[in-house]
Design a protein around this nucleic acid. Sequence first.
DNA 1: TTGTGTTTTATTGCCTCC
DNA 2: GGAGGCAATAAAACACAA
Length: 325
Amino acid sequence: MAGGRIFGGGAAGGSSSSSSLGLLLQNNKRTEPLDSLFLSGSCNSSSSSPSFFASRSMMSFEDVHGGNGSNKTYFRSFGGGDDIVDDDFDEYFQQPGKKRRLSVEQVQFLEKSFEVENKLEPERKVQLAKDLGLQPRQVAIWFQNRRARWKTKQLEKDYDVLQATHNTLKDDYESLRKETDKLKAEVHVLSEKLQEREKEKENLELSENSNKLSQEPPEKPIADSEGEVSKVSAVEDISSSVKSDIFDSDSPRFNEAVHSNSLLEPGDSSYVFEADQSDLSQDEEDNLPSYIFPKLEDVDYSDKPTSSCNFGFPVEDHAFWSWSY
DNA sequence: TTGTGTTTTATTGCCTCC
DNA sequence: GGAGGCAATAAAACACAA
């Protein structure tokens, strides 16, 4: 233990008319134990000089006179001084590396002061030191250590609160996940049913058509209207087929339609799959059929005005993305 | 009595503020 | 540059079980 700071040089001289805690508690009621401290620990005692009083605080009366360790009270009376033998004190005080515990009363006093204000201004430090018969440096150290203890306790409290919050969130997450799984399974079952129904319908139509074709002899259309008639029937065929393909992600015609942007135009009344993309994670997007969640690179918005920073989204739909970096 | 863990007091070194 | 705060740490004091 070399070097280090030099002790604060004892309590400041002069008498005071108010205690340090009194400085802070001017408008507060004092507690009874502290009152006794204030009274008994007064530095106004004419019988002892402040410097002597502060020095005396560095020792235990009972230690000097053979006290038995635990349950010690170091400073039975702050003001008296008649029962102190200076030689014993000097002997004790000069022992190197000895630590002296503060008395219960001193600690109570300091605790009370700490409750009021956990920082220590120089004036209060000196005043407290005077009141308690300690070195100002000791008071400062006590406050420093007390702040450290308080901080540790606070951290423990914060940790407990965070842990409780974490547990609550975890439970919420679990229940939401279960609900999501349940809903996903429901969606799966329903979409399978839908596909089955559409296929049945399609098969029925095909068989009906083939029956008609096999029973009716082919009629030659009139030359003038031939082109028109075949065009209309062709369009009808394609139209009905496309409609059913909307529900069939495997249909190449469906994909063509999507790519040409002719069927799934947002805002169109036929735009039936307006998925809320914000609720889907990227992984989920990847697993979904393209008709529910067309990939960005598959959608051509070349006919729409775009800004330099809209990531390929139509400007009017994604103003959010349109800020400039 | 002794070994061990905890608490309290004090030191050291670094940092910030005035 | 000095004062004061803080984190890390040392070491004495204390508590307590074996």
